[in-house]
């Protein structure tokens, strides 16, 4: 187990060394979104009666930060190691494939959740936010981060250059996040787009996460939990097997 802990520690140290870039910067970005959107839209958009738009926005932005950073951590760590060649140290080490998967997964989840936690904490300074059920908040944050961590690892393993990771991030992760209801409730969409949103797993992560804050959601949190849980387990299985197969890592 020492090998596993060492890899996890190394991965945590890696993003902690550049904490301004990996944690502080995304928190600031989320706060800027919050400032601008809430200023413009506070009195114009009502999503749930008795929840102001600014309050509504906070969990969405926090979850968006969780997802983007969980993705960024896994993908950037792997692609950097591949491009600089130091992934060889890991490939030579007697650490089981499952432990490698788990260490990368956990490091990414920890970074994602830390940033999300930071966004909520920073928001509390300016905005009055209540929590309805802490359990659901944690569950969806962790599972959502886990899903994006897997996607990040897959992207990092698949990509051969940094810009291929950027393609994955900008053309898949970003659209799916923005179209999942970070800034709105899907009930405000036309029927067709509501249906499209329901096929986006990101929607369930954000909807379930938001339920933890307000006790209100577009779909039942149990349904969201089921969808997010199944997606997480499936992607974990895929990612573990890709690592085990040595795809693009062991030629």
């Amino acid at each position: 187990m020492v090998g596993f802990y060492t890899l996890l520690y190394k991965e945590l140290l890696r993003f902690w060394r550049v904490v301004f870039q990996t944690v502080a910067a995304p928190i600031l970005t989320a706060l800027l979104y919050l400032l601008i959107f809430s200023h413009i839209l506070q009195d114009r958009v009502t999503v749930y009666i008795d929840v102001g738009y600014t309050q509504f926005l906070v969990p969405g932005l926090a979850m968006m930060s969780v997802l983007q950073n969980a993705f960024a951590n896994g993908s950037s760590s792997i692609i950097q190691s591949k491009v600089t060649g130091n992934i060889v140290f890991l490939l030579l080490a007697p650490i089981s494939n499952f432990q490698v998967f788990l260490a990368y997964l956990l490091a990414s989840v920890i970074r994602g959740v830390s940033v999300g936690f930071g966004v909520v904490l920073a928001s509390i300074i300016f905005i009055n936010i209540s929590t309805f059920n802490f359990f659901w908040i944690i569950i969806f944050a962790v599972l959502g981060a886990g899903i994006l961590a897997c996607l990040g690892l897959l992207a990092g393993i698949w990509a051969e250059k940094f810009d291929q990771v950027a393609v994955f991030q900008n053309f898949i992760v970003m659209p799916m996040t923005f179209l999942s209801g970070v800034f709105y409730s899907i009930h405000s969409l036309p029927e067709f787009w509501q249906q499209v949103s329901r096929s986006n797993p990101f929607f369930y992560m954000i909807d379930g996460f938001r339920y933890g804050f307000f006790g209100k959601s577009d779909v039942s949190p149990m349904v969201s939990f089921l969808v997010v849980g199944i997606v997480f387990l499936s992607l974990s299985a895929v990612t573990f097997n890709v690592i085990k197969s040595g795809y693009k890592l062991r030629t």
């Binding site: 020492v2 090998g3 060492t6 890899l7 060649g85 130091n86 007697p94």
Partner: peptide
Amino acid sequence: PQELVYDPFFTVREMLTIQSGYFGI
């Protein structure tokens, strides 16, 4: 390895400590 590979995040001591840890030490 033949290539001069290294991890730019760490010092020599950290690299060697991490390497030892990878091998369970």
